[in-house]
């Protein structure tokens, strides 16, 4: 067992004076995908933003053995974390190429991987990102994180609102990425979680209520119903309701 890549201890966060994360403690192993789960509005996005210092936060965050909880966001990112926000947040008025140029650090060392994963983006380099479809925007958002040499990726609901076929594409891309980099993934689609995640961390009212192997959690119907409000039978292993 190697040391975790990310250690979060007693993390709390506030948005516009309102506390949205109580006190969250968990670890992200240095390999594979860790899924951060929980009902809507439970504070998953806010936890990621708190880790990155995008919102007011307190508590301890240790990345690669170094404390990062007092660093500015751009320093945290530069230290080797890629962030794919909820709802893509591509720059609509910038072209695809400009979105990429903005994201690339040290010349964007993984450009080949990105071109291979998302060939569509190459063809649309000159197009304004705001005119892309949701799936294409998600590719831009993922590509912005994958193009750099990161040691951790924070990815927030990458399949939200996408067509089933695109969900598959995105899942494949995430699987490829996970071979090289550990990922902390927020995801509502439990099929995607099952396909990718090794470990799950479950939040409820701003606190961690479950940590453990992904299969153990996903196979426990009582637990998923109670903590996520979904019936696993609805999302059977090969169901098509993605």
């Amino acid at each position: 067992m190697t040391a975790p890549i990310l250690r979060v201890e007693g993390l709390g966060a506030r948005i516009a004076g309102q506390q949205v994360v109580e006190s969250v403690t968990f670890e992200v192993p240095a390999r594979g995908v860790t899924a951060l789960l929980g009902r809507n509005g439970v504070g998953k996005t806010s936890t990621l933003k708190g880790i990155l210092g995008l919102i007011e936060r307190w508590g301890a965050v240790e990345f690669n053995g170094e404390r990062i909880d007092n660093l500015a966001t751009h320093r945290i990112i530069q230290s080797g974390i890629g962030y794919v926000p909820e709802d893509r947040e591509v720059f609509a008025s910038l072209s695809v190429a400009e979105n990429m140029r903005l994201a690339e650090r040290n010349g964007g060392p993984n450009r080949e991987l990105v071109d291979e994963l998302f060939p569509e983006l190459l063809a649309r380099a000159g197009q304004l990102a705001g005119t892309l479809s949701g799936g294409q925007q998600q590719m831009v958002s993922l590509a912005r994180a994958l193009v750099n040499d990161n040691t951790l990726l924070l990815i927030d609901e990458p399949t939200k609102g996408l067509a089933p076929l695109i969900v598959l594409d995105v899942t494949t891309a995430l699987g490829r990425a996970a071979e090289a980099v550990p990922i902390l993934l927020v995801e509502q689609n439990l099929q995607v979680v099952r396909a990718l995640a090794d470990t799950v961390v479950v939040l409820e009212s701003g606190l961690v209520v479950f940590t453990g192997p992904a299969n153990e959690f996903l196979d426990n119907e009582e637990l998923t119903t109670e903590l996520l409000g979904v019936h696993l039978t609805d999302v059977g292993a090969t169901g098509d309701n993605a």
Binding site: T73, H74, I77, Q78, Y83, P85, L102, A103
Partner: peptide
């Protein structure tokens, strides 16, 4: 904030 979240 997304600009800072790209490490800039």
């Amino acid at each position: 904030s997304m600009v800072t979240a790209l490490g800039i």
